[in-house]
Nucleic acid binder design. Structure first.
Length: 728
RNA sequence: GCGCGCUUAGCUCAGUGGUAGAGCGACCCUUUGACGUAGGGUAGGCCGGGGGUUCAAUCCCCUCAGCGCGCACCA
């Protein structure tokens, strides 16, 4: 209010309700134009670096609610730290997402009546690349819509040549250090996707299946898979089992469904004398445990199931049958032959399935590339125990250590085209040296790790390229240092190690653990000092969102309907780390009202204050209000520093609405309408000061509406809110 | 089987060793003065059951139950 009692003139925009749809894109354009997403352009270059590497979204579809959560939290941290004077770098990226994307693309092909099998692999690769790049740019637009203040000039894609180069260098070094080996081991094979999968890419499911007790000569063996009997190469008993001791080292012979069988009897601790009959049939080719037994006793393996899950020509009349059919048929035959001693129909056990198609995985023995994990895991364990990496929520540390302690070697080969090719080459035929070059032929390497095609120095033969690609997580596991240009890049020196890794709790093993291990291995340093894990976003009823349930909520749609600020606020408040968060429309709508409330609060303040007035002597009421405000600032700051964003957001919301609007503004009406000029000046100053203060505090939570208001303020300490100073 | 988490208002969730909190929803009142996308108010909870520690437990410990999740090679 001016001295004569009339209202200050205010920007016209405040005469209408806040319109996020019109304001948000304009604000994002303003930020991009100023260039402050790039920390090198910040006005103050004296601050400490503060880095978050964005978990690169899979470039194979639209952003989902989980992405919106990470954008919300990471952008909050970045904006907060930027306002604190740090040189904040948020490095965006996109993941080619090997297997995931190939699966998505296969579905697309299926719809078009095509199939990847039989397609020229170069052609397929090119098609998926086009598809991925289109999705990548689509997704970048969506990140902008969500307000991500990331440095687009540093954006990385997992297939960028420099990233691939780093991945190759790591593989080569692991190989030289003896931490990578090619081995024929029992691996998880998906008969639909025609590739092997790592342990993490399997899900186990409890099932009730018949347990068949089969007469094997003098023994009875129990199995759920009679169809694998043609691949049996031994039977095993426990070394101390008195019932069978005299058989150890001998052979049993009997007539099977396709002819005579002759199997050695081996003794192995693996056998539990209490289970079944205490005799186990050993099928090394199709059971990982049996494979381990076979390794200990150097037993051969006979593959009786092929890559499509059909019985091979080693199975006589059963050849060509699918596993399920063969199981029944073999069991029937055994029964007719009097070989089926009994069947337990209620046998409960677990089967491993492909995490994508949920088909039962077939264990097969195939040559694959493995990374020896124990030495890598040990270093990670030490670093975590020394708190070089801390977890929010804390209990994830226990979960991580437990996993690291029980880690298995990691199969990094995939039999798919979409991915980074494994840079391995094989000497196809036995090396027959050219005349005069026989001398050191013993040094001829059968396997060479190299980006370029090697040629044999002894026989001039060209090496054959490995056709497999890397598990996507092998490259994403190197993301923090690969994106920053390890080892010589300027950014690497400046921004590594990073401060926070914020991602979904469900990929803690897939990604977080591997980044810690590979980061330590290559750079000697943990790649980040804090891990913040958010929970899965569910529908209101706590159900996981899925297309089949039809309860998927698109964050982009909510953003278009209620504004991104409302969406972000809804994803912040009530979202504690590590627990699931329900996302539903009513909640988001409530925060749209809040954005509008802020808008109207500003209108009131501008109409009733002189923004350029100096701070007067404060009336007692305002000194108390100022203390209250400052307490709130301290509280909110502490909450953010301690990663309690949900608390900070709620306190701000509560202050602005229920303290500032409901109490301060209401009591101001009588003060400003009264006759005490001193009290009026004091209150006017406080109103404007408080507005400036909570706009700053709210900026990391609701960047758009706060910036939009800021742009219309007559007097402020910075032309853009995003680089203004955080209140003390 | 082992491990982890959760259980607080109708719903979604915070929280604290000392007569319980938010948002949404419900009900009632308010209609020119920042905002009706609003304001004011009311109701609603043996803080999952049982036991223990304590002067005092929703909170710490033990135990049970229900729900959810992770890990696991018994054929």
């Amino acid at each position: 209010m001016q001295k004569d009692g009339s209202k200050q003139s205010i920007p016209e925009a405040f005469l209408k309700p806040y319109d996020p749809i019109a304001e948000e894109p304009a604000m994002y354009a303003l930020w991009e134009e100023r260039g402050y997403f790039n920390p090198d352009n910040l006005p103050d270059q004296s601050g400490e670096p503060y880095t978050i590497i964005m978990p690169p979204p899979n470039a194979n579809g639209s952003l989902h609610a989980g992405h919106a959560v990470f954008v919300t939290i990471e952008d909050l941290l970045i904006r907060y730290n930027r306002m604190k004077g740090k040189r904040a770098l948020w490095l965006p990226g996109a993941d080619h997402a090997g297997f995931e994307t190939q699966v998505v693309y296969e579905k697309k092909l299926e719809k078009e009546g095509r199939t990847r099998f039989g397609m020229d692999s170069e052609q397929l690769r090119k098609e998926i690349l086009d598809f991925t790049l289109a999705n990548k740019s689509f997704m970048e637009g969506q990140l902008r819509q969500l307000g991500a203040s990331c440095d687009w000039s540093r954006e990385k894609f997992t297939l960028d040549p420099d990233v691939v180069k780093t991945v190759y260098a790591t593989f080569e070094q692991l190989y030289k250090d003896g931490l990578v080996y090619r081995g024929s081991k029992s691996i998880n094979w998906c008969t639909k996707h025609q590739t092997s999968l790592s342990e993490l890419e399997t899900i186990s499911e409890e099932r009730i299946d018949p347990l068949y007790y089969m007469q094997y000569g003098p023994f009875v063996v129990a199995t759920v898979r009679p169809e694998t009997m043609f691949g049996d190469t031994a039977v095993a008993v426990h070394p101390e089992d008195a019932r069978y001791k005299q058989w150890i080292g001998k052979e049993i012979e009997f007539e099977g469904p396709i002819g005579p069988m002759k199997l050695p009897v081996v003794a192995d601790e693996y056998v539990d004398p209490e289970f079944g009959t205490g005799v186990v049939k050993i099928t090394p080719a199709h059971d990982p445990n049996d494979f381990a037994v076979a390794q200990r006793h150097t037993l051969p393996a006979i593959a009786v199931i092929d890559q499509y899950g059909k019985l091979t020509n080693k199975t006589g009349k059963f050849a060509g049958m699918k596993v399920e059919e063969a199981r029944k048929t073999v069991a029937d035959d055994l029964e007719k032959m009097g070989m089926l001693a009994k069947v337990d129909r209620e046998y409960k056990h677990a089967v491993k399935k492909c995490y994508k198609c949920e088909r039962v995985l077939e264990p097969r023995i195939l040559p694959q590339w493995f990374v020896k994990m124990k030495p890598l895991a040990e270093r990670a364990r030490e670093a975590i125990s020394r708190d070089e990496v801390v977890f929010y929520p804390e209990h994830y540390e226990k979960i991580m250590l437990h996993w690291l302690d029980n880690i298995e070697d990691w199969n990094v080969s995939r039999q798919i085209v979409w991915g980074i090719p494994i840079p391995a080459w094989y000497h196809e035929l036995k090396c027959i040296p050219k005349p005069g070059r026989e001398a050191d032929v013993s040094t001829c390497e059968e396997v060479v790790i190299s980006v370029e095609k090697p040629v044999c120095a002894f026989c001039d033969a060209e090496y054959l390229r490995d056709t497999d690609t890397f598990d996507t997580w092998f490259s994403s596991g190197q993301w923090p240092f690969a994106t920053l240009g390890y080892p010589n890049g300027k950014d690497f020196k400046k921004f590594y190690p990073t401060q926070v890794m914020e991602t979904a709790g469900e990929i803690i093993f897939f990604w977080v653990a591997r980044m810690i291990m590979l980061g330590l291995y290559r750079t000697g340093t943990v790649p980040f000092s804090t891990v913040y894990l958010h929970g899965i976003v569910t529908a209101k009823d706590g159900q996981k969102m899925s297309k089949s349930k039809g309860n998927v909520i698109s964050p982009l749609e909510l953003s278009e309907k209620y504004g991104t600020d409302a969406l972000r606020m809804g994803l912040t408040i009530g979202n504690t780390p590590g627990t699931t968060t329900a996302l539903y429309e009513e909640k988001i709508r409530a925060y749209k009202l809040f954005a509008n409330k802020l808008w109207n609060i500003t209108r009131f303040v501008l109409e009733n204050t002189d923004a350029s007035a100096d701070r007067p002597e404060l009336a007692e009421a305002d000194a108390i209000r100022l203390n209250e405000l400052n307490d709130m600032v301290a509280d909110v700051t502490r909450d953010i520093d301690e990663y309690r964003f949900y608390m900070a957001g709620e306190k701000l919301y509560h202050y602005v609405w229920h303290t500032f609007a409901d109490l301060v503004i209401e009591e101001s009406k009588s003060i400003l309408g009264g006759s005490d000029a001193t009290a009026q000046a004091s209150r006017q100053w406080f109103l404007y000061h408080a507005l400036i203060t909570f706009l700053k505090l709210l900026h990391p939570f609701m960047p758009f509406v706060t910036e939009s208001i800021w742009q219309k303020l007559p007097n402020k300490d910075s032309d853009v809110l995003m680089v203004s100073k955080w209140p003390q």
